[in-house]
């Protein structure tokens, strides 16, 4: 229930990225960001809530256990040089040491870039399309979700072996 309430609050998350761009003054040069970002302040509060929620969950609710993913996934990932989970995220990508190597930095930066760009282009992210959109039986959302999977499967099966198996 707690989880679902949390999900309920995250609907339409990617629009916050646009709001932050606007708040930083991007509206002066680019039309997309020329709107009253203060009208989005409630949505931004959810973002702050997500950060606080993450903090509370990691400090007080989590027992520090590793994510229990399936054996098949562990095997596939180890073939790519990524060790079995010790926490929520793989050390090979998220440890500060690796994140600031050229490769790790580019993975996170370009991956983030694609997420930000794609989310605006498609008009929504996982919460907006897959959950809110399909709930409202919207065909565009279904198309977008199919797109999410085409992209995701391409990265998983084609790009990742190239990136991690040098």
């Amino acid at each position: 229930m707690l989880v679902l309430l949390f999900f309920g609050k995250s609907f339409g998350f990617s629009s916050n990225l646009r709001t932050i761009c606007a708040a930083c003054g991007a509206g002066k040069t680019v039309k997309l960001f020329d709107f009253d970002w203060r009208s989005q302040i409630w949505n931004l509060l959810f973002l702050v809530g997500a950060i606080i929620g993450g903090f509370i969950a990691s400090e007080f609710l989590s027992n520090g256990e590793a994510v229990q993913i399936s054996q098949a996934t562990i095997q596939d990932l180890s073939a790519l040089g990524i060790s079995a989970p010790e926490g929520m995220q793989p050390e090979e990508i998220f440890s500060l040491e690796n994140a600031f190597s050229l490769k790790g930095f580019l993975i996170l930066l370009l991956g983030g870039f694609a997420v930000g760009f794609g989310a605006r282009y498609a008009g929504g992210c996982t919460s907006g399309h897959a959950i809110s959109g399909i709930s409202n039986l919207q065909l565009p959302s279904l198309i977008a979700v199919i797109g999410f999977f085409i992209g995701g499967l391409f990265t998983t099966w084609i790009l990742m072996p190239l990136i991690f198996n040098e």
């Binding site: 995220q89 694609a114 997420v115 605006r120 498609a122 797109g147 995701g152 391409f154």
Partner: peptide, 18 residues
Amino acid sequence: IGGIIFGLGWALTGACPG
């Protein structure tokens, strides 16, 4: 197209905006 670009990044970083 937007969805495909999003998906590429999603699988790589393992994180969507939320």
